[in-house]
Write a protein that binds this DNA or RNA. Sequence first.
DNA 1: ATATAATAGACCGACGGTCGGTCTAATGCT
DNA 2: AGCATTAGACCGACCGTCGGTCTATTATAT
Lengths: 230, 230
Amino acid sequence: MARVIKSPEVRSAELLDCAQRLFFQRGYDDTTVNDIIREAGLSKGAFYHYFASKEALLEALAARIARESLTELEPMLEDPSLDAVGRLNTLFSGSQRLNVELAPQLRKTFAVVFRPENVVLFHRIDEAARELALPMIARLLRKGSEEGAFEVPDPIAFADMLLQIRLIFRDVMHRALRQAEGGDLEEAAHLLEERLRIYGIAVDRLLKLPDGTIEAVEPGFGRAFLGAQS
Amino acid sequence: MARVIKSPEVRSAELLDCAQRLFFQRGYDDTTVNDIIREAGLSKGAFYHYFASKEALLEALAARIARESLTELEPMLEDPSLDAVGRLNTLFSGSQRLNVELAPQLRKTFAVVFRPENVVLFHRIDEAARELALPMIARLLRKGSEEGAFEVPDPIAFADMLLQIRLIFRDVMHRALRQAEGGDLEEAAHLLEERLRIYGIAVDRLLKLPDGTIEAVEPGFGRAFLGAQS
DNA sequence: ATATAATAGACCGACGGTCGGTCTAATGCT
DNA sequence: AGCATTAGACCGACCGTCGGTCTATTATAT
């Protein structure tokens, strides 16, 4: 193979790009190191010059994805013009807007990453994202608690639970996607929205807000996300 | 090797026993099929006569573990002498009693299964347990709702969230175990109990019970579990 | 006797990872 | 400027391991 030299930053970014594309297309286990280096156009040796193992590549990728995602969401959590409840609502509506914008791509990715045989991939990304998100959410909860908006005995523990509970959407989304693909868009959209609504109520209750304060679903989100044209 | 013939039930049970012991000792990935058949004392051919793949073995094992665990817990969820709140409290105290009884063995198992590189193992077992537990919990919630004890808009969705939220203890327990092993039993026990207390409050709030109604920790559980002699 | 289930274990291909070595570009030295 | 040295990016043949397959053989049931 022709020898091409690039700066380490470019190379490792390219490796991560390729890995991300392949992992999101076929899953982690079904993507071989050889697949990755073929697409990235370099050798085995070069690959292992950058990453100690396939596993290490996954971790680096998870960290990058987590960092990028949270950079998009962080401003909503810190918006100084809003109170704590407003920030939470902004977070939900904002992430829904993002989801709809990127719906065609996201749907494909979710369909792969949420498959049971890809737990490892999913879990690594979630773990990385969680680590970054936990202090942010905890700070928001503490702030809201001090402002008297919430009633949260232990911001970190509650942030932890809030982040944990959202993971029901791995399964819910997976089922909705399969159902939508099977033709029943109405039913799928309804399942998704209903679960989001209930999730919103759960958040309300955990924070001792009146049911319905947190708006975890925009009306029509289910159809907008599941039915968005590619 | 000497040819030994056993009934299929015995054989597959033995295979599952070995697999469980090895998976819980070294994890799933680090246990090879050859390890399993060596311990179980049979050949590759026999192994693949009983299980289509290593993966299939894992699923069967997860199903068995889930079935056994839930058989122990089910009576508490159905106890006709108690109301809904009482049943939930029995469930928590009962599973804590079980944990303390089996503490030495459980600690070893948890220390392995909760390790990040063993997510697959953990997740398969949890998935199987969840599938069995979901309808039971949902029924309890519906019953409690009808009795006026809880206020639960969607028993299935709430049961789902309740089951999801408990998974924070994968990480919490893992950390507590490591800390206790590192010598700081007091701190570890405190972390564990505090998190269980907060978890109880979370359950209260989700079900619209007054904070403190659900008793998710028995006092002294942390020390009893983490410090129980082998 | 014959079919079928159970068992054995040699064998296979694919995979992650290693290793000795090559090539290039920057740096130091005269 | 011109040459030597060096760091490290890069190559790809090779290796051990592992999950899984295949054929042969033995036990059991009818």
